[in-house]
């Protein structure tokens, strides 16, 4: 059973951007793609635990704000040094203008 948690209003996130969402002592990052789809990953970079929501989203890539580790936020795949461990991803759905994450 997925545990769906309401994270934010859909329009809280600008297109091609990311926000931080804290839940149950964990940090998540929630993304809105240029195609207006929503995605979620763990919120801290796998390299040095920097909060990814301060980073830049370009197309389907989130870049760590400190050391430029890059990940595909749709798949979690690490795309370049110094990031070599993939990000966990989480299912997301949008209902009645709200974004839900299955944590």
């Amino acid at each position: 059973m997925a545990n769906w948690i309401e994270a934010c209003a859909a329009d809280n996130i600008e297109e091609e951007d990311v926000i931080r969402f804290d839940h149950g002592g964990r940090v998540f990052a929630i993304y809105r793609s240029p195609e207006d789809e929503y995605f979620a990953t763990e919120g801290l970079c796998t390299h040095e635990h920097i909060c990814l929501a301060d980073g830049l989203v370009m197309d389907e890539i989130i870049e760590c704000p400190k050391h430029n580790g890059r990940f595909n936020y749709k798949t979690g795949e690490a795309k370049g040094a110094p990031a070599c461990i993939n990000l966990k991803t989480y299912p997301v759905k949008v209902e009645d203008g709200a974004v839900f994450v299955a944590v």
Binding site: I50, C51, D54, G55, L56, P65, K66, N68
Partner: peptide
């Protein structure tokens, strides 16, 4: 504070 300037510096 923190990484507040990171996104804009990258752009």
């Amino acid at each position: 504070p923190g990484n507040a300037v990171a996104k804009d510096i990258r752009l």
